[in-house]
Simulated assay, not measured.
Amino acid sequence: MIRHLVLFKLNDGVAKDDPRALAGAKAFDELGGVIPELREWECGWNTTERDIAYDYAINSKVEDREALAAYIGHPAHQAAAGQWREFATWVIADIEV
């Protein structure tokens, strides 16, 4: 199994209530029920307000590297991630569990 973690940082001047951020969060909220390779899917806004904190996170699990590649290449994932490119940056980690 692979745990896929993504942390998003909103760009300067972009707030959580920005329509783009709200639409991006909605797009990710819907992915869990759309992409069959996802074994687990959690996402949401960070609840802490610290300088080093990221703003939004995805915590998911897939079976293997092939499933991860299928998830990343899935059109729904590509569309959701494409929205975030307009207003945020992110870091990822894929760990075997």
Rank of each mutant, 00 (worst) to 15 (best):
R39S: 09
L38C: 03
D51T: 08
I58Y: 02
L22S: 11
A25V: 13
P19V: 04
W41A: 00
R39D: 10
A15H: 13
E40T: 13
K16D: 06
A15G: 13
D55E: 03
V14E: 08
G13I: 05
E37A: 15
W45F: 08
I35T: 06
A23G: 08
D51S: 11
I52L: 12
I58S: 01
G33S: 14
R50C: 01
L31G: 03
T48D: 14
L22F: 02
E37P: 11
Y54G: 01
Y56N: 05
A25S: 12
I58A: 01
V14A: 07
V34K: 15
E40H: 11
A27W: 04
R50G: 03
P36Y: 12
D55F: 03
A57S: 12
A21Y: 07
R20G: 10
D18C: 08
K26S: 14
R39L: 15
E30V: 03
I52M: 12
N46S: 07
P19L: 01
D17G: 09
A23W: 04
Y56T: 05
E40P: 02
D17K: 12
T47I: 15
G44Y: 01
P19D: 01
D55W: 03
L38M: 07
A57W: 11
D17F: 08
L31H: 03
W41T: 00
A15Y: 10
W41S: 01
E37Q: 15
E49D: 15
T48P: 00
D51P: 06
G24T: 04
G32S: 04
P36L: 01
E37K: 07
D55Q: 04
E40N: 08
G44W: 00
G32W: 07
R50M: 04
G32H: 05
D55L: 01
W45G: 00
A21C: 11
W45I: 00
A27R: 05
D51A: 11
N11A: 08
P19F: 02
W45C: 00
K16E: 12
K26L: 10
P36C: 03
T48A: 12
F28M: 09
W45R: 04
L38T: 00
A15S: 14
G32R: 06
E49K: 10
E37S: 13
D51E: 09
D29Y: 14
L22K: 15
G33E: 11
C43N: 15
E42R: 15
L22C: 14
D29P: 06
L31P: 02
V34Q: 09
E40S: 08
W41E: 00
G32D: 04
P36A: 00
F28C: 07
G13Y: 05
A27I: 09
I52G: 09
D18F: 03
L31Y: 07
A15K: 14
R20N: 10
A53H: 06
N46G: 06
C43P: 00
R20Y: 06
D17C: 14
V14F: 14
K16T: 14
L38G: 02
A15R: 13
I52V: 13
Y54Q: 05
R20W: 13
